[in-house]
């Protein structure tokens, strides 16, 4: 059963500083990937953290008919998982232990230990990192660490999966692999996936919907061919660029030069 997320009149800020003001994101559908793109400091991380209940926010975030903003941290965690952009440093835990702790740490979903272990392993296998299970997080490469971090989010099987630049440290093989996996996951479980990406072509390839954020406002929102256009790129990213389809029909973005602002 696919679920739907509705965001209405969301205000998010830090202290007295407002970053996102009165933002509406109608009907984010489950079963498909939604990409959130935008320049640095546009507010992507801030928005995702607010959706996860990590940043205080005013307004409404509804999952079907559950009002998420009314829930506690533990309540949020039953429905939503957020994968942070920053990865932990200097941790003496193995990949497997870290994945397991994602399941065991919240009282509500304490599973029988054997079941939790099997689930953790299955997740690592699907991400292709089962061979890293017993390696320490602090002895992994940056990309491996990112995959391990992704595993910790996915293993919780949330209804809403929020991924903050999960592929920023990955090589092209793993980028494609992760994107395919995330898309499959969305389809299989009917879950809502919002993924922050800087690679717009990648977003266009895997997401059914692209939301472009600029200065905390929505600059474009829709199917890739609707949202990603030369005027949008000029206005939001300050670049002169062409959007073309390659022989296989995938959107390609060719950036010619930066525009003076």
């Amino acid at each position: 059963m696919a679920r739907t997320l509705h965001v209405e009149k969301l205000h998010v800020g830090y202290g007295r500083r407002t970053v996102i003001e009165s933002l509406d994101l109608p009907a984010i559908a489950g079963g498909e990937v939604t990409a959130l793109v935008g320049p640095n400091a546009a507010g992507k991380t801030t928005l995702l953290r607010a959706l996860a209940g990590l940043n205080p926010a005013r307004g409404s975030v509804r999952l079907d008919d559950i009002e998420l903003t009314a829930l506690s941290i533990a309540g949020h965690a039953r429905h939503v998982t957020y994968m942070p952009q920053a990865l932990p440093q200097r941790v003496a835990l193995t990949v497997f232990e870290a994945t397991l702790s994602a399941l065991m740490s919240a009282r509500e979903d304490i599973l029988p230990a054997a079941e939790a272990r099997a689930k953790a392993l299955a997740t690592l296998e699907r991400l292709g990192i089962a061979d890293l299970a017993m390696r320490g997080l602090d002895e992994l490469s940056g990309g491996q660490r990112q995959l391990a971090s992704l595993a910790q989010s996915i293993v919780r099987e949330p209804a809403v999966l929020l991924l903050d630049e999960p592929t920023s440290a990955l090589d092209i093989h793993h980028q494609i692999r992760v994107m395919q996996f995330v898309e499959e996951l969305a389809r299989e479980r009917g879950i809502i996936v919002i993924i922050v990406l800087h690679d717009i072509a990648q977003a266009a390839r895997f997401a059914r919907r692209i939301v472009v954020l600029q200065n905390g406002r929505i600059a474009a929102d829709g199917a890739p061919e609707v949202a990603v256009t030369p005027p949008m790129l000029a206005q939001v990213y300050k670049v002169e660029a062409r959007v073309e389809r390659c022989s296989r029909g995938m959107l390609q973005i060719m950036v010619d030069r930066p525009l003076e602002s």
């Binding site: 953290r49 996860a52 209940g53 990590l54 506690s72 941290i73 533990a74 309540g75 949020h76 965690a77 039953r78 939503v80 998982t81 957020y82 994968m83 942070p84 920053a86 932990p88 702790s101 994602a102 740490s105 919240a106 509500e108 979903d109 971090s149 910790q152 989010s153 919780r156």
Partner: peptide, 9 residues
């Protein structure tokens, strides 16, 4: 952040 997103207060 990670811990809070696992539901830990």
């Amino acid at each position: 952040d990670r811990a809070r997103s696992f539901g830990i207060a």
